[in-house]
Amino acid sequence: MKSFRADIRVTLKNGVLDPQGKAIEGALGSLGFDGVDQVRQGKTFDVTLNAKDKKAAETALTAMCEKLLANTVIEDYDVTVNQSDK
């Protein structure tokens, strides 16, 4: 078994309204950041796990996203796996 570290990004699907992102966009505007086109709020998860190889780690992490970390009715997810340096 090897140790892996994964970054998981969960974001709202295109077309799903994101009122929190809109509010942040407005606040950035009031701070004078006037070049901001759009802000979408999401979540990131930093997961360390043990797996046989990188592929097995990716398979497990994808299942975690499908089953819990993302609600695929409204969210997309993206998994990046790196060998852990620990």
């Binding site: 799903v16 309204l17 009122p19 929190q20 509010a23 609600n71 009715v73 409204i74």
Partner: peptide, 9 residues
């Protein structure tokens, strides 16, 4: 479906 944050936050 899903239940999201209230539109008015």
């Amino acid at each position: 479906g899903a239940l999201m944050r209230n539109a008015g936050l």
